[in-house]
Design a protein around this nucleic acid. Sequence first.
DNA 1: ATAAAAACCGGACGCATGAAATGTTACACT
DNA 2: AGTGTAACATTTCATGCGTCCGGTTTTTAT
Lengths: 218, 218
Amino acid sequence: MAVVTPTHRTQEQRRAETQAKVLDATIKSLLEDGYAQTTTRHVAALAGVSPGAMAHYYPRRVDLVASAIERLAEQRLEAWAELAETLSDDPGERAPALLDLLWDDFSSPLFTVFVKLWIAAADDPELYQRLADTERRIARTIARLAAQSIGEMQSQAGWEGRLLVVLAAVRGLALTEHFEPRTEPLPDPWPIARATLIEVFASPQNRKTTARRERTRR
Amino acid sequence: MAVVTPTHRTQEQRRAETQAKVLDATIKSLLEDGYAQTTTRHVAALAGVSPGAMAHYYPRRVDLVASAIERLAEQRLEAWAELAETLSDDPGERAPALLDLLWDDFSSPLFTVFVKLWIAAADDPELYQRLADTERRIARTIARLAAQSIGEMQSQAGWEGRLLVVLAAVRGLALTEHFEPRTEPLPDPWPIARATLIEVFASPQNRKTTARRERTRR
DNA sequence: ATAAAAACCGGACGCATGAAATGTTACACT
DNA sequence: AGTGTAACATTTCATGCGTCCGGTTTTTAT
């Protein structure tokens, strides 16, 4: 495939360029076709790179998806850190805002990629090994973010369980929405779930401070 | 392979026997090796049946796993119906008991099989088609069971959201426990989550303040 | 009871796809 | 200009799914 361009690209440029193309193609494939269908050939074709060239950078499939997921994690963490800045100072507003942030994150297609990889990793020790480190960083960041977002709440009884339940509920809801087979489409469950989760967060103990009505978004 | 055959097995018997062996082997493989590694030959070897024999009953892989999952669903539904009988009549006891039932079900290895198949079905239209019907029956049964278990609660404000959140939370918690990669083992989250979920189920509807500001929007 | 028919089971082949080894081209340094 | 090294391309090997055909056991009809 004769490259017509006499452009003087340095090796570093070429290297970075093909790597970027390959990683983008990998993410695209994971999103649209799932992990099983994300084959080396398919990714190479999507990226417009020869299979052999790709094998040079990512010898095995695991290397490919591990690198891609690390890049994804970077983006996700950056987005989180950025959005965390926009949170209100009012404790009564902060919980609902955090919930919406969570839901936006979990209901995005990127969440499905992570889930698909968790499942695959359950039966693939090597992939598991590669994902564990990345996943750990994500979990830590989210935990830290959540902790500092609900800050003073931690002194109250049962905050640990409430945080656990809220996170699990959002995850479970997202899982159902994304993956559970349906014969007919169902209405968006978030408005109803959101209302209940705000109650859980606000908890009976400090109802006087949080009894103010929350804003309805969107 | 001369079976000296003093056994007078009727065709129906042979048929049922090999089918049972194959289906059991399929479930075993799904449990231990995941969907991707559940190959037709692997299952045949596990069942002690030749690939050709298996192909006679289940021409393609989809037929195999679809049949297996239907059998699993039967067992699961029967177990649920049976356990539902043992629930206490005391409304105060019934919610915790239902929660424990839920957790037992979702934290069992069988749950992981269903999840693995959901994920696989997301990128496999034919498998999706086959699973949708079965999954729908399960969802209906659980919904009906939960509804009649919390019976009179339905008259109270926000019961819809509470049920939704509780189910989602248990699902999400189970997902995390089963699949999220960890570098170190974590303590069992159920005791803490359980306590919070019981509150969610049973607590705030007694207070008049929360009942008023429910139904934010929809 | 026995022969014909049907059902059941076992092994093997073709096709497609995934991963890896080997060969070829382009760049950098002196 | 020439050589060593890194980037890229092609080829080969291994694995898994789906299907067919031959052999055997059970059923049915006389």
